[in-house]
Amino acid sequence: MFRGAFSIWGRDMRVLRRSLFSELLAVIAYPLTLYLAFGIGLKGYIADVEGVPYALFIAPGLISMTAVNAAFDESAWSMWFHRRVQHTIEEYRVNPITVYDIVIGKIFSGFCQGAIKGVAVAAVIFLMTPFRFPFPHLLAYLFFIILGSMIFSCLGTICGTTIDKPENIGRVQAVVIVPLIFMAGIFFPLSSYPAAILPAIRVLPTTAIFEGARQALLKGGIEGGYAAILIATAAVSFVLAVWIFNKKIEE
């Protein structure tokens, strides 16, 4: 069972291991720049946000953002590359495995990339700052990173499966993914939203990922509402990714 998924995942991890150092360097540079620019550059202008120093306020969001972006990127581009450029998906498909093996293997690879890169950024930010967190807070935070990476890996897989032109993957990222992430309040508290639209923002899965993660890290505990939204979104996006891949591949 899932021998194929495991083989494909193993292949992706082997390839990742070869370039791990340069990948990490590249992936850490961006959130770190944002952190330095906003957290330290704006320090004098923004006092505490809801009682939390601004640099600390944005740290969890930057880490989560790295994780979900990495998961999305890996899944979308890898699926696209193996399907359209290398045609390796076809090689996988003439082996005695199922399409489920392929899509599940790919989703897990994306998820692992997200989780590994998120943890790497977390380690760097924690090392650079004086903030320390109790272990249970970190565990609760990890819960959100994992579910967030899972959801974005599924979304990436759906994009990589359905989109044939690479420039369109970039467009989806710019028009859908980035706004969803920024709207979830990485750089500002949700209380900045007008009361009228706040309920809509609160049910966004990205809000659950970012706001839930921030609360988990700063205050500890997993908020039930956010956890429920995330688990439901993860389940739906997983089923959807598998179903869409199956449909598309069978033509």
């Binding site: 070869r18 290398q86 390796t88």
Partner: peptide
């Protein structure tokens, strides 16, 4: 053997064969 080669260029020649063997259990 498909009309267009579909080797994995991120794996060595041997690793390409090993991945195939693994997928065959």
């Amino acid at each position: 053997v498909p009309q267009e080669n579909n080797l994995d260029r991120y794996l060595t020649a041997r690793e390409n064969l090993v991945l195939h063997a693994r997928m065959h259990g």
